[in-house]
Amino acid sequence: MPTVSMTVNGKTVSGEVEGRTLLSQFLREGLSLTGTHIGCDTAQCGACTVHVDGVAVKSCNMLALEADGAEVRTIEGMANPDGSLGVIQAAFQEHHGLQCGFCTPGMVMAAADLLAANSAPSEAEIRAHLDGNICRCTGYHNIVKSIQAAAAQLG
């Protein structure tokens, strides 16, 4: 079986995979990083969003071997080094940006992707950037508020 190596949340990891092993599957089953959720498995819902080489991708729609040599960041890499919640995560908690929480890892990764490129997004820009992340609980209002609050805090 082919071997894949990548950096995940700052740590070098490697493992044996099949050609068809998805990045989401490698993260969850190979590395036990189950914070990355698989919702639709059709690249519609965005629950599996992670960063690959600094940009958001849907990890259920990318092969693990395509990420060979890449820098990957997952929701587990969003907390502070002491384990406390990162700014975006804390903003989601503070502003009730989640109910069931299933979509939240993808929402946080999408938000971080947006804020890395645009430190002061408008509400419309936030909503446009969440086009590929579906939430069935919140109606999005509090997610948008959470991201606005995180943007203000991160400056």
């Binding site: 965005g46 690959v52 849907k58 999408a110 992707d113 086009d131 590929g132």
Partner: peptide
């Protein structure tokens, strides 16, 4: 096209 994550791939 698609959404931001799709456009990145």
């Amino acid at each position: 096209i698609g959404d931001p994550a799709v456009r990145n791939r």
